[in-house]
Design a protein around this nucleic acid. Structure first.
Lengths: 281, 281
DNA sequence: AAGCCGTGATCGGGTTTTCCGATCAATACC
DNA sequence: GGTATTGATCGGAAAACCCGATCACGGCTT
């Protein structure tokens, strides 16, 4: 049994297509076929029903799936649990939404360290989808994200929301802002949707970015208007070059703490959730 | 990551000798070395301290050991959990002490089936040591045995004891029994010890067997004396050829139900333990 | 009905990995 | 100082793995 086989199995269980799995895993279809066959031989049961029109899990395959997840999770847990930075009693790997890292990370980690001085932290800014996948595989212990991806093994908890405000190099009035010089933000699907509804005419903007930092970078370089984090907006306006677009609606993005279901009740994880939630309380 | 590597790691952690592990796993020492290196590379940490004078686990290795056990266990669980006999909702694999199978198995299984009609049973008579190993790897779910082998992952519960009585083809009196025609029984280390203490002069018997069924077979074929299960003794005496050695002390062998620590609190396992215990209540 | 597209299986080959047997260097013990 | 035992290392044989191409089959369109 090799991890490769499990990864292939799980991906195939998701895509239900040898070709798509081959593409996603950057291997050939014949290799997918061989790996699945190898795994089936190892467990002693057929795991997939292959027909000309698609692939599906057999009852055995369905029963095997949670075990495959558990194995992969355990393996990843094992790999990192054994190496702990010297002096620390344990290691926590945190994921943080890309957008939030720049502004909030410092505060959070300072607070974490104060409450958990014995714990070492490894932090990785990333996107929601990737963080959900990493929580599942055990690469991350805890994540703060915008877009929870429902999954039976994941547990999400709302910890508040962050506010985005519109700023501009040109005008403080919403009516005067045109799509041509507007930077549209798609920080998350939910955010994008809200954005479209509240300012439908700006949704046709020529430039669309998925990160608050990038919006700032663009606006600083080329001028124009766009939504940025409240805190960033205040800083930029104080700098003199930017104006707050006062009559533009504020956009609120909900923030979630995410953990693997297995850790839901662990005191350590509860503590972290509380500390993050306090930020928005 | 392959199961082979984990098996090698765990065996090496036990023997602390590359040579002995090679011998036990029927591979060469160089393969053990290569496998350990491969695993170390996979987890990214040195797992063993090798010195000329023996081998020992590094702190990382110590931390990895439970994970390795968990992985192996999960893998074995997965392999068999997915294949369930048709019509049954689940499968339990039971181990039963070799000596007890012939006499008690029928009653037990009948009782199990009555209480758990939806459950399929796979039963394997075996010896205590092997059953302990199988419980650890997840091959067995539940076992009834004479000799619990202490292990952090195993949970034992006393369920009573069985009585052995001495019978003979020759005389009903202990004083007249000689080692020459006596069949010594070593059903378990504890039993053997007790046997030696109570009848020290018979411990030098020419024939020594580890199974009650074999004792019966020997006595039937050649005549003589020896300890057999109480129930068997009664049957044989009723048959006319054998005499009960009335003044010989009865030997009581404690019986234990054994499960993996993970299943200690599962209702199903508790139920089985109760049903077995009722036998001796 | 014929042709086309998409499905997974299979085959030949080159590459990589795995394993063994032998040997080596270093230590423990006599 | 020998001898036995420890794990590491090397070379070659065997096996496993992966890819690319092709095949067989079913569903769809024309």
């Amino acid at each position: 049994m090799q991890i490769d086989l499990l990864d292939t199995f799980l991906d195939l269980a998701e895509t239900r297509s040898f070709h798509r799995t081959a593409e996603r895993l950057r291997i050939t279809q014949s290799t997918v076929s061989a790996r699945v066959t190898a795994l089936e031989q190892a467990v002693g049961s057929r795991l997939f029903d292959r027909s000309r029109a698609g692939t599906d899990l057999t009852p055995e395959g369905k029963r095997f799936e949670p075990h495959a997840r558990a194995l992969r999770h355990e393996w990843n847990e094992a790999k990192r649990r054994i190496q702990i930075p010297q002096g620390a009693s344990q290691l926590m790997r945190l994921g943080i939404q890309n957008d939030l890292a720049a502004v909030y990370l410092g505060d959070w980690v300072a607070r974490f360290r104060a409450v958990l001085p014995e714990t070492a932290f490894y932090i990785e800014p990333d996107y929601s989808n990737q963080m959900c996948a990493d929580l599942l595989t055990g690469i991350l212990d805890f994540a703060v994200m915008f877009s929870p991806k429902p999954h039976p093994d994941l547990h999400f908890e709302s910890v508040g929301d962050v506010t985005y405000r519109m700023i501009s190099t040109e005008t403080p009035r919403l009516a005067e802002i045109t799509p041509a010089r507007f930077v549209f933000a798609h920080f998350s699907p939910a955010f994008e949707e809200m954005h479209r509804q509240l300012t439908p005419d700006l949704a046709t903007a020529a430039v669309s970015v998925g990160q608050s930092g990038s919006v700032v970078s663009l606006l600083t370089a080329m001028g124009g208007s766009g939504y940025v984090l409240e805190k960033t907006a205040a800083d930029l306006v104080a700098g003199g070059r930017f104006l707050m677009v006062e009559d533009a609606p504020d956009l609120r993005q909900p923030v979630f703490a995410a953990i693997h279901i297995r850790h839901r009740t662990l005191p350590l994880h509860r503590k972290l959730t509380q500390l993050v939630a306090r930020n928005f309380g």
